[in-house]
Design a protein around this nucleic acid. Structure first.
Lengths: 157, 157
DNA sequence: CCAAGGCAGTCTCTTTTCGAGACCGACGCG
DNA sequence: CGCGTCGGTCTCGAAAAGAGACTGCCTTGG
């Protein structure tokens, strides 16, 4: 059980990764963003074993990233992104950006175009104050309120 | 072997995920960005089994994301990010952003501050043409050169 | 009414991967 | 020498993943 309890660490990279970090989860979400809603569509597009898909969809629903909606009784259920799930889009776009740069020798297989515009979607890391672009070198980590709360909780134990 | 050959699909999200999509890989990279270089430091910080770490580091080296440098003979080896590895930073920051928003009830445990500035690092999805901010709804996928090349290769088979 | 087919799930069985912890050799130091 | 540290390997039991058959429900068409 060691791995699961990484989620208790006060780190906003580690915690999501415990949910998203496995073979299939982000691929399923990629499909969801592409408009896929049905069990068999996920299964067929990805080639994921059915029991695995069942498990992963359930987990994503548990985490409030997808909702399972069965319109009418006897209707086929649909899996849709919640707004929490929708917020994952920048992660996928950051991955795509890296993929286009480093794993697409023939150029991007897909362009993610801005609707009604000549441009394409890009992720950028920038300062929310001065707006300047940033890289890892410009970043200085510093304790935040969540860490203080976490340490406080430790003391209370 | 079905899973590994997802890497052949012409999709710049799928291809990186085949490399990065597992329990530990992104956590290891997170540590690397935090300045960790030594085998035992990765192992201790993450609690990853030693044999697993060995395997993952080797894989990252094979993919040109890390380099293993052994300064002098008999010196302890170091694992450092290559520039390709360095380019993964926005992915981690996008994950962190989501983590701060949805998995940090007490506020961000760590602030990623802009050096010599009051601000913090943020990832943003924007149009590279008009500069406007974008969400998944504003994105229209469209075939790119990599897809054409891929289809051409298929025909040649 | 019956047969066929699609859909969402479930179950079973085999293979692969993971994890814990011991073990090893090289080096460093008193 | 004895002891500790570091990177790395090995073994073995446990957990997860994969393939594929099977079920139950509903629709459609004859």
């Amino acid at each position: 059980m060691r791995y699961e309890q990484l989620a208790d660490l006060p780190c906003s990279i580690t915690r999501p990764l415990v949910v998203l970090g496995d073979r299939w989860t982000l691929l399923i979400l990629k499909e969801a963003f592409a408009g896929v809603r049905r069990f068999n569509a996920f299964q067929g597009n990805l080639g994921i074993p059915r029991s695995r898909l069942q498990d992963r969809l359930g987990r994503l629903v548990d985490h409030g990233i997808l909702v399972r909606r069965q319109a009418d009784e006897g209707e086929h259920p649909e899996y849709r992104l919640t707004s929490k799930g929708h917020d994952l889009y920048p992660i996928l776009m950051a991955i795509r950006d890296w993929g286009d740069t480093h794993m697409a020798p023939d150029g991007p297989p897909v362009r993610y175009r801005h609707r009604d515009c000549a441009g394409e979607a890009r992720v950028a890391l920038a300062c929310d104050c001065c707006g300047e672009g940033m890289t890892a070198h410009d970043v200085v980590p510093e304790a935040g309120p969540g860490l203080v709360a976490h340490l406080g909780a430790d003391l209370r134990e």
